[in-house]
């Protein structure tokens, strides 16, 4: 591949500058949301939960087409439905929760693919949904993302303190009057919304990477939950910028490029971070 030619041709084309800018603005918007929410997913050891929701998103796309609503609305509805099921199954003990999440996750992905294959009348860019296409975001997408960011971040801010208490020790928090059930439902809704919004940027297969990797990198430079959330946002913005740059320079697929950039940051944080992860 002639990398220098590719990058030069993209960068010199002035009409394309707008889509790069749009991609950057959209990516930063997602980093703003994914940072604080990703922290809770890591703290609450819910990585699999986020994974399952994002895989279910494809089913949501199909549902959106079937119902004649926008894919994003279909994804939000499906994620909320799956999230409700997940909240329910956590209290049963017949099948281990992680097994059940794995089953749900891949079942939802498969059913989504099957449903989409039946839809001859609509042309679905499957690769776009699986791996995202940040370079194709429209101004309307950006409006969705930032409106979503306002809703998600203010929702998270409202439940922040009780959610931290709940994360530290659920029984203790409940004994001290935290309305655990309501907080968990709101949190699940926020994750569902985030998955729906982030889908276009990194695709359903990589959303949970965007939620997890910057968070893991941020742990080493924080001494309070809030610091960690802010550091995660910072590193997420860094990953989006770096990933987009790499994608333009070397003609990489952009979603995976962002995740790869986040991983590079994570590895660097392991090498240079001042604070060691303590085991207890």
């Amino acid at each position: 591949m002639d990398m220098s030619c590719t990058s030069t041709s993209i960068i010199t084309a002035t009409t394309m500058d707008n889509f790069i800018l749009r991609a950057l603005v959209a990516g930063i918007g997602i980093a703003l949301i994914a940072g604080p929410l990703g922290c809770f997913i890591v703290w609450r050891r819910m990585a699999y939960f986020g994974d399952t929701l994002s895989h279910a998103a494809l089913l949501g796309v199909a549902a959106g087409f079937a119902l004649g609503v926008s894919p994003i609305a279909g994804v939000i509805m499906t994620c909320i439905a799956i999230g409700a099921v997940l909240l329910g199954v956590q209290s049963q003990s017949r099948v281990p929760t992680d097994t059940l999440l794995g089953i749900l996750s891949h079942t939802a992905l498969s059913f989504g693919l099957i449903a989409l294959s039946f839809m001859d009348t609509v042309r679905v860019d499957l690769m776009g949904y699986l791996f995202g296409d940040i370079l194709a975001v429209t101004t309307a997408d950006i409006a969705w993302i930032y409106a979503g960011a306002v809703v998600i971040l203010s929702g998270l801010l409202m439940i922040w303190r009780p959610l931290v208490a709940l994360t530290i020790h659920a029984d203790l928090a409940v004994a001290e009057g935290v309305p655990a059930h309501r907080i968990r439902i709101i949190f699940m809704l926020l994750i569902a919304l985030t998955v729906a919004l982030a889908m276009k940027i990194v695709g359903v297969l990589l959303i949970s990477a965007l939620l997890l990797i910057p968070t893991a990198a941020a742990r080493r430079c924080a001494s309070s939950p809030e610091q960690m959330a802010l550091a995660t946002v910072g590193l997420g913005v860094f990953a989006v910028t770096g990933g987009l740059y790499a994608s333009l320079m070397w003609d990489l697929p952009s979603g995976p490029g962002i995740v790869a950039a986040a991983t590079v940051i994570f590895v660097l944080s392991l090498l240079v971070g001042p604070r060691a992860f303590r085991s207890s």
Partner: peptide
Amino acid sequence: RIGYLPQRFAIDAALPMSVRRILTLTA
């Protein structure tokens, strides 16, 4: 007004938390 000290208490290493902060989580 109940003050409760739970039996098992392990705080995930991924969650940064100071003593001051844990004392004022819900109070």
